[in-house]
């Protein structure tokens, strides 16, 4: 029994996990440990498992994931900053049989693209929206985003984000709960919040993304909205492992995980 060697194990028939074939060989330009890579990987796995690589059209955002079209071996369209839901609306209405998904960060979806997000969700377009929330503008160097936590230090809030001054006059504002906000709209079918910091959470997240794609494939009306709480270790100024720990201690109390809305019904928690 103990004579089994690594050469015996490393055989093609024993392979249980490898990168999805729908990801190209191009290296991710993301920082080491960035959640974007993990989310890209699970989206590619879901598309591969559902066998919809010929029918899928992705919309790339502006932000760190701007070059997502280089990494997926499916059709992609690049949107102007924040306008991915508007572009997805157009593509889905012209080609109702295609599976259309947007991939956006918090600066794209919750800041410059808030109007497009809210109106696409309010119209109840039959699209899937993937929202990666790391609470900071990663690509431009770590400025405060609407989703930045209270007290969080960023390049533009060096003393920490302060929503109001002591006398109550407004200052930086409160963290924007965009996912809760879109869950209130009648056009959203499935709204959930997931994370990718450990193996169990990655598997849950994959199930949620799969459901979001399946709802659209079955022509069920309504937006499928998946938020993924992710890290930005470079701009949080931590190692990848510390950033994942910080995420669990600080991000999750403000952005708790779980389904928020399913089948047009809010899940009360």
């Amino acid at each position: 029994m103990s004579e089994i060697t690594l050469q015996d194990i490393i055989q093609p028939e024993n392979l249980v996990y490898e990168k999805s074939k729908l990801l190209t060989d191009k290296r991710f330009h993301y920082c080491p440990g960035c959640g974007h890579g993990t989310v890209h990987r699970i989206i590619a796995e879901v598309i591969e498992e559902l066998g919809i690589d010929e029918e899928t059209i992705g919309i790339a955002p502006v932000g760190c994931a701007v070059m997502a079209y280089d990494y997926f071996d499916v059709d992609f369209q690049e949107a102007a900053h924040g306008r991915a839901p508007a572009l997805a609306t157009g593509i889905k209405r012209v080609w109702p049989n295609k599976v259309v998904f947007t991939y956006q960060g918090d600066g794209d979806l919750a800041a410059i693209g808030t109007a497009e997000t809210i109106h696409a969700c309010n119209r109840g377009e039959n699209i899937t929206m993937i929202f990666v929330n790391n609470g900071i503008y990663g690509m431009t160097g770590g400025q405060m985003a609407p989703t930045t936590l209270e007290g969080m230090k960023t390049a533009t809030t060096p003393y920490g984000r302060k929503p109001q001054w002591e006398d109550g006059t407004p200052n930086n504002g409160f963290p924007l709960q965009i996912t809760k906000l879109v869950a209130q709209l009648p056009g959203t079918r499935f709204v959930t919040r997931q994370a990718v910091y450990d193996a169990a959470k990655v598997r849950n997240c994959k199930k949620a993304i799969k459901k979001a794609f399946q709802n659209q494939m079955e022509n069920k009306n309504g937006v499928n909205f998946v938020e993924i709480v992710s890290n930005c270790n470079s701009n949080w100024k931590m190692s990848a492992v510390d950033a994942n720990k910080w995420l669990q201690e600080n991000m999750l109390p403000v952005y708790p995980l779980g389904d928020i809305k399913d089948n047009f019904e809010l899940i009360n928690k």
């Binding site: 015996d8 392979l15 249980v16 996990y17 490898e18 991710f28 440990g33 993990t38 990718v196 193996a199």
Partner: peptide, 22 residues
């Protein structure tokens, strides 16, 4: 034991996992 926890969390998808029953 080939649980693939490392591979599913790897952001760059660089890990291949092999598993063999004894």
């Amino acid at each position: 034991i080939g649980c693939a926890s490392c591979a599913v969390t790897c952001p760059d998808g660089v890990i291949k996992v092999y598993k063999k029953a004894l």
